[in-house]
């Protein structure tokens, strides 16, 4: 029933979120860089000075974990609360509602892009070279964004009916910092848990990044397949759940 340009609307919503977020900040987008740099600094200190670590490239190792996790946590939580936060819009303007959580996730992508540039900069500073495996980067990042969109579609629907959902998501994000191999290597995980770990797209993502950027290898096919299948399935499931759930949004927000 709504006829319009969905992509144009999506683009406008994403730009709008981005502009609102950064327009009133004095240093603007530079703040995107501050959080990962601080985290990297602190964790490097803890895990190389307090707990000695043989890994000479530990800051790169860390950043390969921090950047995807940072993006994922923020994108998921803003996606979760997006429908409830845009209640005025959802109740008054007949537009395709799927656009709201997807725009919320995508509006974090500009922030992400800046952090990826920081990551690549640090990778190069530590002596790694640009290699053709870097061509995998857009694929891998694309899959993570797809996964975040899928989850956001699911949790944004749930959050309308049960407002506790956002607190559950926040708790999961806190736990994820420990369950994703951010500051420990994948090899530290006992073999029996290794398969399950890789099913978590964020963990799979971190492993792929380390393979591409630090070891100049293509990511393992099995890891990549797990990442791709979980991301695509989550997105499809997200669309399905949202489609069913959105019918009664009006009465609950």
């Amino acid at each position: 029933m709504w006829r319009g340009d969905s992509l144009f609307l999506l683009e406008n919503l994403v730009l709008r979120d981005f502009r609102i977020r950064y327009r009133n900040m004095s240093l603007g987008v530079l703040w995107s860089l501050l959080n990962p740099l601080v985290m990297m600094g602190v964790l490097t200190f803890v895990f190389t000075v307090l707990f000695p670590n043989p890994n000479k490239q530990f800051p790169v190792f860390l950043m390969c974990g921090l950047v995807p996790l940072n993006f994922f946590s923020i994108a998921w939580i803003t996606g979760t609360t997006s429908i409830v936060d845009s209640a005025a819009l959802v109740k008054r303007v007949p537009l395709p509602r799927e656009i709201v959580p997807i725009a919320a996730v995508l509006s974090n992508c500009l922030h992400l892009l800046i952090q990826i540039l920081l990551l690549l900069f640090i990778v190069l500073v530590f002596g790694n070279r640009v290699n053709k495996q870097w061509l995998w980067l857009p694929v891998v990042w694309g899959l993570e964004i797809l996964f975040a969109c899928g989850l956001a579609l699911i949790t944004s629907t749930l959050n309308v009916y049960v407002r506790d959902t956002r607190y559950v998501v926040e708790s999961i994000n806190t736990v994820l910092f420990w369950l994703v191999p951010v500051f420990y290597p994948f090899e530290a995980i006992p073999h029996k848990y290794a398969e399950i770990y890789q099913l978590n797209p964020v963990a799979a993502m971190v492993l792929c990044l380390r393979a591409i950027l630090m070891k100049a290898e293509a990511p393992y096919l099995s890891t990549l397949l797990k990442l791709a299948s979980v991301s695509v399935c989550t997105f499809a499931l997200g669309l399905l759940i949202f489609h069913q759930g959105k019918r009664r949004f009006y009465e609950f927000i």
């Binding site: 319009g4 144009f8 406008n12 919503l13 502009r19 327009r23 009133n24 303007v93 537009l95």
Partner: peptide, 17 residues
């Protein structure tokens, strides 16, 4: 926080242009 011009664009997109 957005300018009039930016708001016009977003509103127009929402109304289906």
């Amino acid at each position: 926080d957005l300018t009039g011009a930016e708001n016009v664009r977003i509103n127009a997109a929402m109304l289906g242009l």
